[in-house]
Design a protein around this nucleic acid. Sequence first.
DNA 1: GTGTAAACTAACGGACGTTAGGTTGAATGG
DNA 2: CCATTCAACCTAACGTCCGTTAGTTTACAC
Lengths: 219, 219
Amino acid sequence: MSGSGRARNARGDGERLRAEIVDAAVRVVDGGDEDLTLRGIAREAGISAPSIYTRFSDLQRIVDAVLALSFESLDRRVADAIEDETSPDAALVSAGLAYVRFGWEHRSRLRLMMGAAGFSPDAVVTFERIERLLRECVDAGTAVSDDPHRDAFLVWVGLHGMATLQAPERADYRRLGPLDRPALAELIIRRLAGLRSGVGGPSAAPPSSAPVDRGGVHA
Amino acid sequence: MSGSGRARNARGDGERLRAEIVDAAVRVVDGGDEDLTLRGIAREAGISAPSIYTRFSDLQRIVDAVLALSFESLDRRVADAIEDETSPDAALVSAGLAYVRFGWEHRSRLRLMMGAAGFSPDAVVTFERIERLLRECVDAGTAVSDDPHRDAFLVWVGLHGMATLQAPERADYRRLGPLDRPALAELIIRRLAGLRSGVGGPSAAPPSSAPVDRGGVHA
DNA sequence: GTGTAAACTAACGGACGTTAGGTTGAATGG
DNA sequence: CCATTCAACCTAACGTCCGTTAGTTTACAC
């Protein structure tokens, strides 16, 4: 019979449990459960609830770990998106799209991140990437800005709005008509950053002929 | 002694209790309690928990009532802001500022609204006000847009971002330096709407000399 | 007075976070 | 090869809060 529980880890290997708990917590949040519960995490991890206390002193520490991991993962995605591009112009757009994609793919995670931590120090790291890119654009002459810091914040706000709005899969949302989300996100970035190509004309996101959200980085 | 509870309402006046319950629920949410509980609402209303069942069949109906009331109140604030202005240009900015102010003043209410209802039919009414104003701006020649519907949505997204970001009172947030929130909101509106005065130059929101958030409608 | 809506107290079953204390099995020393 | 050890788990249980139901009391309207 032994314990009806899971296979036991090796002696000095209890650290593995820590990672499994955090992973389970992430899975719970991404599954849509807005409020993390210790028992729910334990269920998802396949362990008993009290076992969690061997690795975490209380529930809040798990939440903290999830938040840290999430901010780091968001920042890495943004950083990776930047590396793939050559011009600062394209890099800024690509970085912004990486941000909003994270929000679309992990809606309740982002909700948790913004709700609990607000403008956390971890988020500042990512913000500063955006700001740096915008300055490069200004230096390269592709963006017009008399205050890059402020305008980077505008972009940040726009990204935040685009990332946190409900997905167009919802029925009500479609009253707005077919929307190409990545193209819209790119337009928001361009206009708020003051990029030359996005101010007024039909330069990006042709209104009706574009296929809806085919997943490419550029519109 | 009689019941240790509150004074009893007159005979056919039970409808008053309904309003009191909803008001209490609003107060609880605005107090920052993200998750409405039936018992919490009862406490705030000064009644016993089961008394709620004389007016609502379950907790969800109270939440629905709070949502309906909130969307209506948001829309009224936007509508009122429009009425006070003469030019479509100023009206669009004023309407947007009314929206973000609602978010700043009722943060968890807006969170509840966006989380539960998403892009609800009630929100569409308000969105259409924005869209109508933008079309008027285009007709008047003060805005450049080849697709007002799409651009109204961009403005909507920007407003949503500005309204839901944490308030600058938070310590972390200040790493960004002093920010004049209404001025930033106005800039976002102007740039996303394609208003002529907000595309690139230092037309609005002087970067450092402006007083911080003194509560006026215009910057 | 009498009826009935308006309110109450008591209590159910369930979920939660957390504590106490037991069981088991992989690593280790002989 | 086996006894020992102790980390890695477990079950049981406490107290609290929750939504909801049942049944009772109170006081206004007629």
